[in-house]
Design a protein around this nucleic acid. Structure first.
Lengths: 344, 344
DNA sequence: GAGTGCTGCGACAACTAATGCCGCATGAAA
DNA sequence: TTTCATGCGGCATTAGTTGTCGCAGCACTC
């Protein structure tokens, strides 16, 4: 692919072939991979590159306990080309704050080297040594942050690789209902991350129906001998919208009409509910009339519920009724003496 | 810092000094920066490095319309060292899906080169050429995703840099109340991203009090001549918790006691509300008793509201009363004939 | 319009580094 | 023990790198 004469580029390629620390790669394998990329060099040269050139300038380690030496990058090293600029670094820091509440720690940890790199850059900005930036940047998550489910690092890596490289996996799955561990062979078809839990969509070996498996209930995962079975007809968006995660109710968008209080009107003017939205002031009393085309899903309904007395839904009537019935039910709940709660 | 003899490393340093495309750097500046880092080389060598070596192997451009030539990286080029692994790439894709709903497009765009890199890697995985991964990975945002406020790219870059490098800025600010544009000089102290809007915390030149400025209402921003004024006593967490964003109500955590329906119990068992939480089954009818130490904030209250009939709060009594009063109010709203539309 | 300074570029020679090859040492497997 | 795979030092050859010089274009000044 590229002229073998160029040493710089060979070094670069070499560096890209060396994995981050849990991973390892042996000298002969490196030689072969370099050859694949058009760099046909002597084993001795490769050894020199690694042992004398790269490992003195980069945080590269060598496991020499066995004879084909195996090389790896320091776990927390990250080098961007081109280097990060200040706004990008700031964005990364914000991104990390958000993601910590949305994805399992292990998954976010996958990117920790990137975030560390950003932090290091920011640390170096103020000459006084005080890392001020850490005290002046915050992300406030949208909605209540539940604590993400615990997830095993190896499980994530295995599942991610299996899904993307189309392999079947053998797992030990902790059933939610029975609480027992079951061995299963799965054919991964998709991953859905929602709230703070992440689910694998797969079908069990020998069956046709697609099921959801919470990643944090997969206690152990290895690649399987079985060949992966595709499902040609699978469409993840269709699957989600069919209500598999309890979200969408109707396939069509609906026109929401509501009266909204001034603070809500302000909020929606800046961060609209929908790109088809109008807000008009009502004659008196600081209320506004909202019209918006929104999806007919649980999320929107929840948002409306959260607004409580600041929003009065006029249409669609089903929502209006739902909200009304809900309010009545909640009120009824709280008017009973609590403790011995009964039917509902 | 490093031996000047090493060419590879000098190339690497050089590559790191070249900014991504909107940015530019001229040859003399590069020479100086290299000298700072211990590489004392002739101008001619630098010219050769750029024009003959690097620009043939890397997506580097050169603006030769003016005489000190100015160099830059292609806008969408990104090279990670070590290279991304599959699980990291998948994480990046998930992260992007989440962030698109949380940060302004311009801010996420700051990282687009990173995300593109991840996508490219995933594209290359399946040999059949079909990029299957795009059809099997989804993130479902937590809560209703409002459309992020529109934000100018330059504004973001200027503000980010000003905040982190402690500079004052001159802005044109569109007042929310009056709708008029005002010129202001601001001394940035912090950035808070919340929901889909991002706010700058700053005090106006000549004043002492801290105010919030929505970034999307800053129509123009440049660095100011005025020197930046610090505020030693500023603590962003304290500021947020003092209720500036309408979140926290009480400074102390409270013990939430509630009866919850089975689906909620399952949810909370996997993604807890708090790390101090217990759930016990109630004798009959599939309800559970929840006890959890949670922050006394609006977020939690909203979450409880969203759960509606699936949660009956027993304590704290203030919340119980709030929820009850809310329900009563909502019900009252819907029992009046609202506006022109009427019951159905 | 000539002078001046900055920058880019081609050429060249001296120098330095990279490469492939050989032989030997080591340790594990046969 | 032998055999094989691998690492490592050394060495001669080859290839690349570097500073220097001279020239040319361009903007700016006087």
């Amino acid at each position: 692919m590229s002229d073998a004469r160029d040493t710089l580029f060979r070094y670069l390629t070499l560096l890209q072939l060396i994995p981050r620390s849990p991973g390892r790669i042996s000298t002969p394998v490196l030689k072969e991979k370099l050859a694949d990329r058009g760099f046909h060099i002597d084993t001795r040269s490769l050894q020199r590159d690694l042992g004398q050139k790269l490992s003195t300038q980069f945080p590269i380690g060598c496991d020499d306990s066995q004879k084909p030496y195996r090389w790896y990058f320091d776990r927390d090293f990250q080098c961007h080309l081109p280097a990060l600029d200040v706004p990008s670094a700031l964005t990364l820091v914000l991104a990390e704050e958000y993601l910590k509440g949305l994805l399992p720690p292990v998954v976010v940890g996958q990117l920790s080297a990137h975030f560390n790199d950003a932090r290091q850059l920011l640390d170096g900005l103020t000459s006084n040594g005080l890392s001020k930036w850490a005290r002046c940047v915050r992300a406030i998550p949208n909605g209540k942050a539940l604590i993400p489910a615990e997830l095993n690092e190896e499980t994530w890596q295995t599942v991610a690789e299996a899904l993307l490289e189309q392999k079947a996996i053998d797992v030990t799955y902790l059933s939610r209902t029975s609480g027992t561990k079951k061995p299963l062979t799965l054919h991964p078809q998709g991953i859905v991350s929602r709230h703070s839990a992440t689910y694998l969509l797969a079908h069990v070996d020998g069956f046709e129906d697609l099921r959801q498996f919470a990643l944090h209930r997969i206690k152990h995962a290895t690649f399987s001998q079985r060949t992966w079975q595709a499902r040609d007809d699978f469409d993840i968006d269709h699957y989600i919208q069919s209500g598999a995660f309890g979200y969408r109710q109707g396939p069509e968008d609906v026109v929401l009409e509501a009266e909204i209080a001034r603070p809500v009107a302000w909020l929606l003017q800046e961060t609209p509910l929908s790109d088809q939205q109008t807000i008009e002031a009502l004659p008196d009393s600081g209320w506004y009339r909202l019209t918006a085309l929104v999806p007919d899903d649980q999320q929107t309904l929840w948002w409306l519920m959260g607004m409580s007395t600041n929003v009065k839904v006029l249409a669609p009537s089903t929502w209006r009724e739902t909200l009304k019935a809900n309010a009545a039910q909640v009120l009824a709940n709280y008017q009973n003496t609590p403790g011995t709660s009964d039917t509902n």
